[in-house]
Simulated scan of single mutants.
Amino acid sequence: MPRELTVGQVAERAGIAVSALHFYEAKGLIRSHRTAGNQRRYGGDVLRRVAVIRIGQEVGISLAEIGAALESLPEGRTPTARDWTLLSRTWRDKLDRRIRQLEALRDGLDDCIGCGCLSIEHCKLRNPDDRLAKEGAGARRLVVEDMK
């Protein structure tokens, strides 16, 4: 592998659009340097960093959280398996909470679809007189309690 990669090489190897690389760079998630001809060049470590970004995004981690995690890594060094273990631990609790919330949503929707709104008095999703507004703004019915 060449020491430095062009934007096209990184995009091809990472399986993403060049515009995504430019976006990640603008957000400070990856870095490049410019040649004398003003062309972007990336170190080989950028491929692993892009993989971390894409995996984080795929599971719903915000770019801000991904950026904070990537800042903990030494610049210019390919993230190792140990680095990934440390990064993924920081996201584990959040993902576990999200899983519980998604399960509650799934189970609530099963009940809703099953009743067909024929039993409005027993509907788990119903919010008569906007009672849940007292708990704050936004959706409240399916929020898992330990997420608060």
Rank of each mutant, 00 (worst) to 15 (best):
G43V: 06
A20C: 14
T78E: 15
R140K: 09
D96K: 06
P128T: 09
R89P: 02
G138F: 07
I120Y: 04
Q9E: 15
R31A: 12
R100P: 00
R98L: 15
T85S: 15
L5R: 02
L102C: 15
V52W: 04
L105K: 02
A14P: 00
A14V: 05
E12L: 14
A14Q: 03
K94M: 08
D111L: 10
R100C: 10
I113R: 02
E121K: 02
R126G: 06
S62H: 01
P74C: 11
I16W: 04
R106N: 10
T85Q: 15
K124F: 06
A20D: 05
L109V: 09
S19D: 13
G15P: 01
T6M: 08
F23T: 01
K148Y: 07
S88P: 03
C123A: 11
K134G: 07
G116E: 02
R49N: 00
A26N: 12
G116C: 10
R100V: 12
S72W: 01
M1V: 11
E75D: 13
K134Y: 05
H122Y: 14
L102P: 00
L21M: 08
R82D: 12
G76Q: 09
L125A: 11
P79W: 07
D45E: 15
D146Y: 07
R40F: 01
L86H: 11
L125R: 01
C112D: 03
A133R: 06
K148E: 10
Q9M: 12
N38G: 06
R126E: 11
